[in-house]
Design a protein around this nucleic acid. Structure first.
Length: 488
RNA sequence: GCCGCGUUCGUCUAGGGGUUUAGGACGCCGCCCUUUCACGGCGGUAACACGGGUUCAAAUCCCGUACGCGGUACCA
């Protein structure tokens, strides 16, 4: 089995593109096949110089490694279509010679005139096809001499597929089953553009054939183009690869996950935005895998490795799937907790030190262990800035509601005990507090709330014993003193 | 307009003739745990688009309608 991911370098890697890459990768891994990366850079006008690097970087980030592609040459390279032009021209010539394609000289104005001529309410989009090609300037309507003359004169021209009407073009889609198109509804697709470069359709089938691709797995937006590809394979006498069209990823309101549409709803479309926003690669991969595929049982947590074993095309769904940021966040929480405190500490160390001055790695790891189950993203740790520095303000609403007249006294009394405490461990701190409330005859809340407020400034958070243990005796006493000053 | 694909809780989905009072997950709500906030546990909310047909029996098969999505470029 050989599969490929064939993105166009026209911009940052799209989230849907990453899923397509993932499914191809998983299928290859599952079957011990080869995963090829091919860069489809045949559109000079939309080419973006940095895009290929972004595609490579994002795949690496997600852990999706390709077996063959740019920089990892196999036997069927090069893997950029811009480096394979001669081959497409050769195939185009063969198609012309066999009568399956023809040369057309019509320029943009002629094409527009064609549309003008035929446009109506019933036919808003007239096409260049078997019904209209007879009106145009092409090698089917012009004499051989004229065609030769125009070619000699260097007149711009394209090569078009000659689609014969009246045939059923069928193929079996691995996800959708049998799909049939009537050939009369297919237009005479341009195969070679006037700049001499191939369109997607030609380049794609030539490369898939030459590269020995056995399974084409791509987005559903390609389903309507597939009969053209089938026709091309037939015309060349090649066997078409197996086809599988993945359900589209839709925006949360159901529409297309276009850049504009999605970002309006707070959904990043470029993979690099997920990187910037601190998503765990394992979480994005897990989420994307389940967006259109399911294992058939109730498991949900899948590493890339586990997916490689479980994935199958048979269990890919057929209908469009809406993107749910909530579910992604949940996966992020799950995968964040899978990481060790030390690992996350290493990731956050630099940023922590920038914000709070030098922070020890071990201190950071301990803070993370206290906060991990309260965080959705690694960087969320910094929202609990009291882990690193004394609170600057105190939550007014909480203070108004729960800071009682007795609070200062209790706090003062407990501070006295803490001052005497030699053994600064969570256990000793807990024992000290329990002893205090027993001796004073007060409830736990009477001391816990004022203590929490003085140490953190907020009403919620991790265990106070571990917080005191983390920041140390001196800092604990200092924060209590400050709070007593400011909250009375 | 035409062509194609689709349609089970708000979302991702299981189920593909009787096993179903339609199962799970996210979200939301409640309870428990608990110094707080979380985590966790338990429970709740909520779906077979509609209409015909086939059948003893349909969420499941067939047809139609509606709706959604995609395509309709010298873009991919």
């Amino acid at each position: 089995m050989r599969v490929r991911f064939a993105p166009s370098p026209t911009g940052f890697l799209h989230i849907g593109g990453l899923r397509t890459a993932l499914y191809n990768y998983l299928l290859a891994k599952k079957h011990g096949g080869t995963f090829v990366l091919r860069i489809e850079d045949t559109d000079r006008s939309r080419f973006v110089a940095d895009a290929e690097q972004d595609i490579l970087d994002m795949m690496t980030w997600a852990g999706i490694e390709y077996d063959e592609g740019p920089g990892r040459e196999g036997d069927v390279g090069p893997y950029r279509q811009s480096e394979r032009s001669a081959r497409y021209a050769e195939v185009a010539q063969q198609l012309i010679a066999s009568g399956n394609a023809y040369i057309a000289f019509d320029d943009d104005a002629a094409l527009e005139a064609l549309r003008e001529r035929h446009r109506s309410a019933e036919n808003p989009n007239p096409r260049y096809d078997h019904t209209t090609r007879g009106e145009m300037a092409n090698s089917l309507t012009l004499s051989a001499d004229e065609v030769a003359a125009r070619l000699d004169a260097g007149e711009p021209h394209v090569v078009r597929l000659k689609v014969v009407p009246g045939n059923a073009v069928s193929f079996t889609d691995a996800i959708r089953g049998n799909v049939t198109f009537e050939s009369g509804t297919i237009d005479d697709q341009v195969l070679i553009k006037s700049d001499g470069l191939p369109t997607y359709h030609l380049a794609n089938i030539v490369d898939d054939h030459d590269m020995g691709i056995t399974h084409v797995i791509r987005g559903e937006e390609w389903l309507p183009s597939t009969p053209k590809h089938i026709l091309l394979y037939e015309a060349m006498g090649w066997t078409a690869p197996a086809m599988a069209h993945l359900p589209l990823i839709l925006s949360p309101t159901g529409g297309k996950l276009s850049k504009r549409n999605a970002e309006k709803q707070g959904i990043p479309v470029s993979v690099h935005q997920y990187v910037e926003q601190g998503y765990e690669p394992a979480a994005l991969v897990n989420f994307l895998a389940l967006l259109g595929w399911n294992p058939g049982d109730e498991r949900e947590m899948f590493s890339l490795e586990a997916l490689s074993g479980a994935f199958s095309l048979e269990r890919v769904g057929q209908s469009g799937v809406q993107f749910d940021l909530n579910k992604l966040r949940w996966f992020n929480e799950q995968w964040l907790r899978e990481r060790t405190n030390e690992d996350i500490a290493g990731q956050l160390h630099e940023a922590a030190s920038e914000r709070f001055g030098d922070v020890e790695l071990s201190y950071l790891a301990q803070a993370i262990s206290m906060m991990k189950e309260r965080m959705s993203f690694a960087e969320d740790l910094f929202e609990a800035d009291y882990l690193f520095q004394a609170p600057e303000t105190y939550d007014e609403k909480a203070v108004a509601k729960r800071w009682k007249e007795s609070s200062s006294g209790a706090l003062k009394g407990f501070a006295g005990r803490l001052d005497q405490l030699e053994d600064w461990t969570e256990e000793a701190l807990e024992a000290a507090l329990n002893g205090f409330i027993e001796d004073e005859g007060i409830g736990m809340g009477a001391i816990m709330f004022p203590l929490r407020m003085s140490l953190s400034g907020v009403g919620g958070g991790p265990s106070l014993y571990s917080l005191m243990q983390l920041i140390g005796k001196e800092e604990t006493l200092s924060r209590i003193e400050t709070a007593l000053d400011r909250l009375g």
